[in-house]
């Protein structure tokens, strides 16, 4: 059944977030031959729009307004509701990001419809159904929307984007909206993410546990992450001990991540941590204790002191990546 599908694209730091392309791929599946319309909201973002077409969007709407410069639930909800009223989609796909997670729930409430959040897989063979983790990935459920609009958010890094095709040109239209009476005001934004790689979207994560021993102990992990273009995460143990910020925590409390490569350094592997990372594609564990639980989920393990192993890894990766 063909469905006209609206996909929310997201800009961040002057570029499009990769999850936008993944959302288009998901939108294509859900649309089942129906038109896929990408919506890009913000201030001064129109120049980014065309690449959404290269990744499969049939049509693109740019929604520019000075009140959309920063995300606010009021501003984005007003803008998206005007787009929805005009486009009348039969399905909506967003990324399960800070924006998508918040906005989708507000829109679903406004539309009085069901919403399947944090989808990691789409079953479009029979009746349209969606796979999503529960208990942070300790189990999965398959869900469907009973009737009405099909509304999902997708977890970054799980649904593959379509191959980029620069010969595909999609029509880009500006869509005017009225955005007013914002009840929450963004006074300031303090950038804390140093590398600019967000944990939920990172392809490589180097993560530290209690074995890192101090805030300074994270330095070698950061160096390795930099060489691999990845992000640094942490276990609850490391956060509770005050070695790092809670925003880095990976686990059932904290972030759930599924990078291509997860390097666990000095992490014992508590159940609540494993829930947050064990669905990563490849897991490397470095731990002094050969009995550490983390080795049970690791594809590769090195029994040893992370302060010896990690700098060596950085050194050899640097070498081979320079050759490549």
């Amino acid at each position: 059944m063909a469905r006209k599908t609206l996909v929310l694209a997201e800009a961040r730091d002057g570029g499009l977030r990769h999850v936008s392309y993944e959302a288009i791929a998901a939108g294509k599946k859900v649309a089942d031959g129906g038109e896929v319309v990408a919506v890009l909201c913000g201030d001064n973002i129109a120049s980014l729009a065309q690449s959404l077409g290269h990744y499969g969007a049939d049509r693109i709407l740019t929604v520019e307004n000075e009140n959309l410069k920063n995300y606010t639930p009021d501003g984005y909800k007003q803008a998206m509701m005007q787009v929805i009223d005009s486009e009348k989609p039969e399905a909506i796909v967003m990324g399960h990001t800070a924006i998508g997670k918040d906005l989708s729930a507000g829109i679903a409430s406004r539309l009085n419809c069901g919403l399947i959040s944090d989808v990691t897989g789409i079953d479009a063979d029979g009746e349209l159904a969606f796979i999503r983790p529960v208990y942070a990935g300790k189990a999965f459920e398959k869900k469907r929307i009973k009737d009405g609009i099909v509304f999902i958010t997708i977890r970054p890094n799980n649904i593959e984007a379509l191959e980029k095709d620069e010969s595909k040109e999609a029509v880009v239209n500006a869509f005017d909206v009225v955005v007013k009476d914002l009840r929450t005001i963004v006074k300031d934004i303090v950038k804390k993410t140093t590398s600019g790689v967000d944990l939920s979207e990172a392809k490589v994560i180097v993560s530290g546990g209690r074995g890192v021993k101090s805030a300074e102990g994270f330095e070698p992990l950061k160096e390795l992450a930099d060489v691999l273009g990845g992000a640094v995460g942490a276990s609850r143990g490391a956060c509770d001990a005050g070695y790092c910020d809670y925003s880095m925590q990976i686990g059932q409390t904290g972030k759930v991540v599924t990078p291509d490569l997860y390097i666990a350094c000095g992490i014992s592997g508590a159940i609540q941590h494993l829930a947050g990372m064990s669905n990563s594609k490849v897991i490397v564990a470095i731990n002094k204790d050969p009995e550490a639980n983390i080795f049970n989920v690791a594809d590769y393990g090195i029994v040893g002191d992370l302060f010896e192993v990690v700098p060596l890894l950085t050194k050899y990766f640097k070498e081979v990546l320079q050759e490549a």
Binding site: K142, G148, P290, D299, Y300
Partner: peptide, 18 residues
């Protein structure tokens, strides 16, 4: 307005190579 059709565990991860 949504319905759970199935619940399952992720494939058990085989312990890898030390």
């Amino acid at each position: 307005q949504t319905e759970v059709i199935d619940v399952f565990l992720p494939p058990k991860k085989e312990a890898g190579r030390i």
